[in-house]
Design a protein around this nucleic acid. Sequence first.
DNA 1: ATCGAAAGATAAATCGGTTTATATCAAAAG
DNA 2: CTTTTGATATAAACCGATTTATCTTTCGAT
Lengths: 354, 354
Amino acid sequence: MTNSRRATIHDVARMADVSAATVSKVMRGVTSVKPANVVRVKEAISQLDYRMDPLASGLRNEQRRIIGAVVPDLESPFFGALVTGLESAAEDAGYTMIIASSCEDEGREADLITRMDDWRVAGTVLVPVRSERGRGAEQLHALDMHAVLVDRVSASDRFDTIAADNFAASASVADLLVGQGHRSILLHSATRISKAARTRQEGFISRVQALDPTVRIDTLISDGGVEGHRAGIRSYFDKMDPNDPITAVFSLSQHSTLIVLGEIRRREMRIPDDVALVGFDDAEWMRITWPSITAVAQPVEQIARRSIATLLGRVEGNIDGFRVQHLEPCELRPRQSSGQRPMMLRNSRQYQRD
Amino acid sequence: MTNSRRATIHDVARMADVSAATVSKVMRGVTSVKPANVVRVKEAISQLDYRMDPLASGLRNEQRRIIGAVVPDLESPFFGALVTGLESAAEDAGYTMIIASSCEDEGREADLITRMDDWRVAGTVLVPVRSERGRGAEQLHALDMHAVLVDRVSASDRFDTIAADNFAASASVADLLVGQGHRSILLHSATRISKAARTRQEGFISRVQALDPTVRIDTLISDGGVEGHRAGIRSYFDKMDPNDPITAVFSLSQHSTLIVLGEIRRREMRIPDDVALVGFDDAEWMRITWPSITAVAQPVEQIARRSIATLLGRVEGNIDGFRVQHLEPCELRPRQSSGQRPMMLRNSRQYQRD
DNA sequence: ATCGAAAGATAAATCGGTTTATATCAAAAG
DNA sequence: CTTTTGATATAAACCGATTTATCTTTCGAT
């Protein structure tokens, strides 16, 4: 477009009457430069409005100040928030992020990892479609890349892993529901391959059995896109024995909560009187909708910060010790759908129709 | 980590017994290479598992095969979906995307644009915090960058713009509400600076006035984070004349819909009997919640594809004609919250409690 | 057989930084 | 006064591709 080319490191060097190498040192904060020269270089930099080209900068080095992030989808608020946190943490450390969505496809996931390697990223944050054994993780290992695995993982001996404490949180859901006297509970999952969902299932079941082995737990795991899920839950209710119905549902993901809720609404069942509902993964609408939905909130921000910190620890510190598994505690937020009383009305007159 | 360095273009050249320049041509599909050599080069490429370094590749050229994307936030499903579409379209065209969130902050927005320029991106997709006159757009112009402005914009003489047809869609909401006999309507917006919200407001008001100038429209624009919005809507209802209450609310964004819905629930008003609700920007939960929420659905995928197509048109075709404004049509989805009858139950027996 | 044009191949320059090996200079040591 | 040492500075090589200018080959036309 316009002809005025952008200032390079050589322009700065010329203006400050030093060599390019010296400018490079000043830029990176290396100390072995005479103070007087530092001043002149900085002067020239601001005079020319010089900004370094991160691309050229990375070329010479084996590792570049880029972090890759691969998540299963970007439309869910959970991953959106996660990515926002990752980006912010990476930026604070002076890294640029390249974000990509695997669209819940393991083949694409492996391709994206390869592409991250093409960019010679310093490290990669992977939220696998499946688990720490999925194709993305395999590719990370095959290409010998630095990485942390996040969310849909349990411990791995190849990579550091970071996730919400799905097991403990699900156990606390079990405490809540069994404590309220539910004796027939449906566990609903909208994916059979997510490690997180499997861990939630295990955490819930093991606690329920410890509390009361006579409680019946039905497990419904459906697949096949929205229609498949719909059909699955519909047929479950159709076949359910009216004399021994389930009285509570624990849905294992936000998506699953929506599906279950849709079906409950369609059948005009009352929440929580006919059936109580608790969902894993909180969302703003769950607080607002009526009745409000009890949910487990995941500490997204925490997970994001720790992911970057752990990854950069490996990358920069060149730590080579045992792989660590981080579990971040979740928070159970009881609301109306599990029998919590509605919030009191305060600070305002009641609106009256005439 | 491991020592086996990665193959470069020179390794391939040596193996195929040609020059690096020839390999480069084959990689980019330039035709002026003898077929026999093409075969040998391709052989060597697959033998060595050679993949080009996009960073080194870009260095020599003025423009790099990178597209920048700056959106106001990544946690809302709308921008999540938009970014997914942008990424996919960019990828199809052989570009890598660098995605960043301005976190609804205009200062940060301008910084991010500058950073995109540092990367010498071929072009930038900007969803401005404010409008086509905001600080990000100013910076794009100051740095003389290629860009398209998306979503929160009206026509600009500096950049191509792409947005949902907010004006027309809001007019159709006016048709719906006035057609149903509403004569006192609240327009609620949770941001005063978004151009999209202002256009929606104008579209609605102008159509209502054309249909029936006696209809009363209250406009409530609140600011100051979640608490500010809450306080705003609360005080509006508190002060409303009980003898002449509004009977419908048109909320101008998904966030705004949540806020309004929350307050309506808190006051235990009935939807749609006490008050009807229509929201701009559809979400999955709006279909599922009870009552389901009437909403305007934006054609995200279309917007994304056209954004990339338009941007690349400028970048590659070097078009320099007039700036164009694209308006993508929206779809109004009537549901229960505006008086639409609940969906019929089909294909399934009704569940009976005993 | 000669010439010219077109096709194909390549050595070398280039992009904008970083790193390395070498050079310079002042202060300390012998 | 010479030598050593430590602190700075820089020229040149380098990273891995693309592009340009040059050179060689091939082939058809005269």
